[in-house]
């Protein structure tokens, strides 16, 4: 029995919309990312985990408890940042946080306070008049203040400025270090790559592919764009025994793919040339998935 199990989960809304036979096993302490186009079914999956909707068939269990039948019980373990933040009718941020603390039966507010200062959040501001970023921060505080064992995030860094996003990711990493299990959806591949152990691709309700980020990191090839001072050098290099995957004669640029082991060889070869620039196209998760999607069609 794994910590979180998604077994043959189907939620059929008709017209081929919903989730269809999703199977996932998540270990304790694992961080799982979920990507997919808008409308693919990511939020539906999170709603099922949160017990907001009932599966048509199949189920999800957390610590062997069904998330629909034992929804409230399971919430003891969960911290949640929803995709669209909608606060209840209360005056200020601090009032909301105190109210949630009561709902969660939190005894101490110290954790909340430390996160509040980390994110530089003004909790006295009026809930109705907060900016998207402030709302997001407030939601993040609410999620982390109970030190949850399972953290569920639906596009958590939207609305955060880059600085705040850094702080948030630090928070997340810290939680992971402390043993939390994380499920997050995002459109930002970099942050998924940074945090997650595995990333799943959901397309039209079906789980198409799941890849571990370490695999991405261990990718044996590097891609470089090399631009030469003049056409002569450019043409000359084209004769070299390297795997040239793209060439643009107008800017004297070639794109080559080279095995990591072969890099010293490349560099010594390049010594002979006059270069304009040399840049790397990093192999990322995004690239991986783009290639995957291309292969599919």
């Amino acid at each position: 029995m794994d910590y979180i199990e998604i077994n043959h989960l189907t939620k059929d809304y008709g017209n081929n919309i919903g989730l269809f036979d999703i199977n996932l096993r998540i270990k304790q302490g694992e961080a799982l990312g979920i990507v997919g186009a808008n409308g693919a079914g990511k939020t539906t999956l999170l709603r099922c985990i949160m017990g907001f909707i009932k599966p048509t068939t199949g189920n999800i269990t957390i610590e062997q408890k069904d998330t629909w039948l034992k929804s409230a019980e399971v919430k003891h373990l969960i911290g949640y940042v929803p995709g669209e933040i909608a606060f209840p009718e209360l005056r200020s941020g601090i009032e909301f946080l105190k109210s949630q603390a009561e709902f969660l039966r939190l005894k101490y507010f110290t954790d909340a306070n430390s996160i509040i200062s980390t994110l530089k959040l003004d909790t006295s501001a009026n809930l109705r008049r907060m900016s998207k970023g402030m709302k997001q921060k407030t939601a993040i505080v609410e999620c982390f203040m109970s030190k949850p064992k399972i953290i569920i995030l639906d596009e958590p860094s939207t609305g955060l400025d880059p600085l705040m996003r850094e702080s948030f990711l630090k928070l997340l990493k810290q939680a992971k270090q402390n043993g939390a299990t994380i499920i997050m959806t995002s459109h930002l591949f970099e942050e998924l790559e940074e945090i997650c152990d595995r990333v799943a691709l959901i397309e039209q309700g079906k789980l198409k592919e799941i890849v571990s980020t370490s695999k991405i990191k261990r990718y044996p090839y590097r891609e470089y764009n090399i631009s030469f001072k003049d056409q002569k050098e450019y043409l000359s290099f084209c004769q070299e025994p390297f795997d040239i995957i793209d060439a643009d004669v107008d800017i004297n640029q070639v794109t080559i793919k080279v095995n990591k082991k072969n890099i010293p060889n490349l560099l010594s070869t390049l010594k002979k040339y006059n270069l304009s620039y040399l840049t790397e196209n990093k192999y990322t998760l995004e690239k991986y998935f783009n290639e995957f999607v291309k292969k599919e069609s």
Partner: peptide, 16 residues
């Protein structure tokens, strides 16, 4: 408006 999510994201049964 979605604020019910916050109530139900806590250990609070729907019947409660």
């Amino acid at each position: 408006n979605g604020s019910m999510a916050y109530v139900l994201s806590t250990p609070t049964k729907r019947s409660k």
